[in-house]
Write a protein that binds this DNA or RNA. Structure first.
Lengths: 305, 305
DNA sequence: GCAATTGATTGACTGAGTCAATTAAATTCA
DNA sequence: TGAATTTAATTGACTCAGTCAATCAATTGC
């Protein structure tokens, strides 16, 4: 269940944006068109050739209603329709020259309205607003398929993200207390302050500019690489991302001449354990502990390379 | 003239969001109400007592139309109206118990719809979306009444947020390198692992479910309270939040019987320094250092209490 | 104290949007 | 292959959201 405060903010935003869009006025942008007319004309004008079904589906319009709108557009010679040769039931809709002109005029007015509203913002603010819009859309529009995950080196703020995400997730899922967050922060902090680029690395998985996973290799001395803070965000689990991150670590450890990778985990983290087993790690020790509240089974795994 | 590419993205977003809002369906949220009905009921329900003019103005409704809606609401006993004693032409509108119930039901459904859409997102994504909404609104809504900031105790993940935000901000603004993030993480981590609720505390400032600031008091021993990790997010600066957070610390230190508050900062952080000076802190030592890359002037300030 | 303004309501429309039924083409599957 | 089912488009028939002008009553301005 999402945080009610978040939902509330979102509702506030929706109320504001309903107003902002000016959806409620009958005459859209001072044109002879209604909002629905405009949406239809826009869709036809920008896609070139569409069928009525596709239009009805995308714009969520009643087919009967759409049919009437198209009929009117036809009699105003804004569009032309002819039967689709591959399916004679279906009509292919195209804009006429006049329709194209109207479509462009609509675009100009819409642009002008937005430009007027953007004008009072600085350039930086404008970009900020648009990137926020992209953020929202990428998350809420099912059509926009999530951007592919990429693995990259860490940047400022990433370590904080790791701490935040892990502690939040494991608190929620396993009831661990804040000592866990403290441990993660200390481990991550030491990693950063003593960072040795020649022997150590931190990888972040991100998708569409948003972090979704992480792992790091720290030098444990004595030819041992410590694999730490493997984490994959809830929303991105089941895609093999954890495996990819671990493989990244193994390759790195090989390349840097480590003789062994060692890691500490808790057996309750089944997905992670499955990855380690799959990559040939072997369990060398385990102990019951209550470091984070509930009793857990801490385990040390190693992989010789 | 704004960048056409930005305008275009914004238009894309608007088209998407028009759909997303579901403004276009007659039966709003499967209730017997239209969107306009719902907006009216919402406004009346949440404001308590309104006049019809005010309602018409805020919702941009035709008075005739509004009058009819109110008449219907009255005959369905959702609202009651009586003449305003100070202006007998004007009607004061209030919701009845039944109206209140309907108003709440509407709220529940609206929440449920949003919750359902948010559910498929990770917690981080939800926060990201809402903070993007706030960004847009803060820029485009002329009456920015941003949600009031509240100060609360920290929760799991907050410490990670502190580390992430601080390191990101100071890297961008002053070019500090990742050793800063490392230091913050270690400090924060130690605070959590040795946390003593009787002598220590961490406060988070949040607005609309989004973290916007933080500060903490750690026990430095010897009657000295260490004030640490004071931070206010860029978007929330200039509102006196930093001062409020510091005051919170001072009260806490007094209540817990500390004799002195001590803190370490860098003189480049002007806003913070101004707060310390304003609250009577005095500078006791300073030293040039290159702990985070660029040369900075580290300072220790104390306040006797 | 009279003219102009303002809040609320009503009459009289219009046309956006809905629902069910119909036709014709395409698909499914025994 | 052909009967049953599904799908694309249209039409009939209707409703009711939303508009515009006119009216009435209370208030304000000069």
């Amino acid at each position: 269940m999402p945080d009610p405060a978040l939902i509330n903010s979102a509702r506030d935003f929706n109320r504001f944006y309903t107003n902002f869009l000016g959806v409620l006025n009958k005459a859209y942008l001072n044109t002879p068109f209604t909002l629905t007319d405009a949406r239809v004309l826009f869709e036809v004008g920008s896609r070139g050739r569409v069928s009525a079904v596709a239009l009805a589906k995308d714009l969520q319009l009643d087919p009967a209603y759409l049919s009437r709108i198209l009929k009117r557009f036809r009699s105003d010679s804004l569009i032309e329709t002819k039967a689709d040769p591959t399916d004679l039931r279906s009509q292919v809709i195209t804009v006429t020259d006049e329709g194209g002109r109207q479509f462009e005029e609509l675009g100009r007015r819409s642009n002008a309205q937005l430009a007027e509203r953007f004008q009072r913002l600085s350039d930086a603010e404008q970009r900020h607003v648009v990137s926020a819009m992209n953020t929202i859309r990428a998350r809420l529009d099912p059509e926009v398929k999530s951007a592919p995950a990429i693995i990259r080196a860490h940047r400022p703020g990433d370590i904080g993200w790791i701490i935040q995400s892990q502690s939040k997730a494991y608190t929620e899922e396993y009831g661990w207390d804040m000592r866990f967050e403290g441990l993660v922060a200390e481990v991550a902090g030491r990693f950063l302050t003593n960072f040795d680029a020649a022997k150590e690395c931190c990888w972040m998985a991100e998708s569409g500019g948003i972090n979704i996973g992480s792992v790091l290799i720290a030098d444990g001395g004595d030819g041992i690489a410590k694999l730490r803070l493997l984490y994959v965000d809830k929303a991105a689990r089941g895609l093999g991302l954890g495996r990819t991150l671990v493989d990244e670590c193994i390759h790195f450890a090989e390349a840097k001449g480590y003789r062994q990778i060692s890691l500490w985990t808790n057996d309750i983290l089944h997905a992670a354990r499955a990855i380690y087993i799959g990559r040939g790690f072997r369990l060398v020790s385990e102990e019951r502990h209550r470091m984070f509240g509930p009793e857990e089974n801490g385990q040390t795994w190693v992989l010789d390379i």
